[in-house]
């Protein structure tokens, strides 16, 4: 049975980490979670980013957050990646599988997956 004691153990383990985390977060992943995004499947995409970033040990470097409608509803689920000093990358028609690939190749490996970007979808 999941208990609050277990949560206290998580707290003790996390205490040192919290300090570390502040001031970092070089990469920001933003998932569109308005009605259009949710209807198109943004929820599993967001959850894939959250768990994959943690699994790959990128939590100190990458923050995953949510936003409203980005304005290109026909391309939902839409995910934007912001990185200091670099141009914003917009991924479109995302799936949990594509999300895992983006974490591995782009967020970890530094290689933008052009095939999934909006630039590729439009041209």
């Amino acid at each position: 049975m999941k208990s609050l004691a277990e949560l206290a153990a998580i707290r003790d383990k996390m205490k040192d980490k919290v300090v570390l985390r502040e001031g970092s977060g070089d990469i920001r992943v933003v998932v569109g979670m308005a009605t259009c995004g949710i209807a198109a499947g943004a929820r599993p995409v967001l959850n894939a980013f959250v768990s994959k970033v943690a699994e790959e040990g990128l939590a100190d470097k990458v923050t995953v957050s949510q936003t409203g409608c980005i304005g290109v509803c026909q391309f939902e689920p839409v995910v934007e990646v912001f990185e200091a000093g670099k141009e914003k990358v917009t991924y479109v028609k995302m799936t949990p599988e594509k999300a895992a690939e983006v974490v591995e190749k782009h967020l970890k490996g530094g290689q933008v997956i052009n095939e999934y970007t909006i630039t590729n979808a439009i041209s």
Partner: peptide, 9 residues
């Protein structure tokens, strides 16, 4: 102080 949005939480 541990935030609710920590992955572990």
């Amino acid at each position: 102080d541990v935030p609710l949005d920590s992955y572990e939480v």
